[in-house]
Design a protein around this nucleic acid. Structure first.
Lengths: 227, 227
DNA sequence: ACAAAAGTGTTGTCTGTACACCCATGC
DNA sequence: GCATGGGTGTACAGACAACACTTTTGT
């Protein structure tokens, strides 16, 4: 006997805010919606939660469908449950955000899904409450990044100090002091100079760094004052 | 025509972590569950989301049913969506936490619902994943309180510095320095001395303070470094 | 030789923290 | 007059913020 048998059931969706960084701008990945209503309009990548998958698994599936990526940094953002948020029917949506390395991203899949990277400085109108979701995700990313070294999830495996700083400037939408930033990063002791130099953006060349897994994992757990 | 017609539907529950402070300990409000499965075991207050109410409204309703309180500080915590979290059936639950002034709480309702206040130091085993929810809520409360002056939501309208400090000590589970704490609070300029004294706990008596709405609202929006 | 980005120290200010005594009062 | 909790100041240390010049090297 099932004491839940007269309880109403709901459509449960996932929407996924996918952040990427191209070395200059922080971007989001959006698709042209394939379903009515609002078919063809810009939207976050989404899908419905199936009967036999957990909500987290559904979010991972949705991300995989659009990016082909697994084992990506992903975090639940918020559950959006207003009655009229989807104009067709009552749908409760659980939003997640993901941080991906654009360098790992497969352009084929992008075309397949009619997906586009858009700079967060130039976000157009999205369907339903997706602009709100994106704003919430940006705010959450800022908070998280201040206390956890997750910024590296957005960078290629080796990166220059300049790229790292530009990323943080993009996230906080504010310029940072180069010397203070460098000192701060070094004091955390989580990146290592590879000795190799990047040669395209300056005559002198700038060192590539990699981050060190063990210290990174430790800080990720403990938290820290990052900026 | 409804393009969602073949999409599976889910049971959607609310669980509510209700925090209160009695002047000494931080406590949670729990009930003896009235439904199978696990009827009679300790549980967070919960309920199902109805077809015609938003998720936030459902959470407010659940809180009201157990406390008779409205316009209470309440925040969405997390959506719990593992497949087997409820042993009877697949139920996705959205957890909220609320901060209430125990002095406003009506004891009648407590008996009606077989509800009990339990110190967070002595939490027994709860049903399903409710222990996890509670831990997450405690962690979130700590984070939130560090940046927002929401601690006042747990105190009576007038309170002594001692009570305020004890509250923060309970939340952080650590003793704080009285002089530094006092200075910090005063520097925020959000509480006002009423001139009235509390006389029961000391010969000298300690001043009652109230918090000042306008500055509080401003800080709540802006955020701050509280502790 | 020059242009363009990389790399690197010092100082003052602020914030946090540790710490101990006198005060007012009811009994 | 004494026991009890209430209320208050100072000094040191660490973190943060502001600030500009030299280095390297491809052209």
């Amino acid at each position: 006997m099932n004491s839940y048998q007269h309880v109403p059931r709901h459509l449960l969706a996932i929407d996924c805010i996918i952040f990427g960084f191209d070395g200059e701008d922080l971007k989001g990945l959006f698709i042209k919606r394939k379903l009515e209503p609002q078919k063809g309009n810009l939207s976050l990548m989404g899908g419905f939660v199936a009967e036999t998958e957990s909500v987290d698994a559904a979010a991972e599936r949705v991300l995989f469908e659009l990016t082909g990526l697994k084992d990506v940094y992903m975090e639940q953002l918020h559950c959006y449950g207003e009655l009229e948020r989807d104009s067709l029917s009552r749908v409760v949506s659980i939003a997640y955000f993901a941080l991906i390395k654009v360098s790992n991203y497969n352009d084929e899949i992008l075309k397949e899904h009619d997906a586009v990277w858009i700079s967060l400085k130039e976000i157009p109108e999205l369907i339903f409450d997706h602009n709100k979701m994106l704003e919430d995700a940006k705010e959450r990313l800022r908070q998280k990044v201040a206390n956890h070294p997750i910024g590296f999830e957005l960078l290629p495996n080796k990166f220059t100090l300049r790229q790292l700083q530009t990323l943080y400037e993009a996230i906080y939408e504010t310029p940072l002091d180069k010397r203070n930033f460098t000192r701060k990063i070094f004091s955390l002791d989580i990146i290592k100079n590879t000795g190799e130099k990047e040669r395209t953006t300056s005559r002198k060349g700038s060192f590539y760094f990699v981050f060190e897994e063990e210290k990174y994992k430790h800080l990720e757990k403990e938290g820290l004052k990052f900026i």
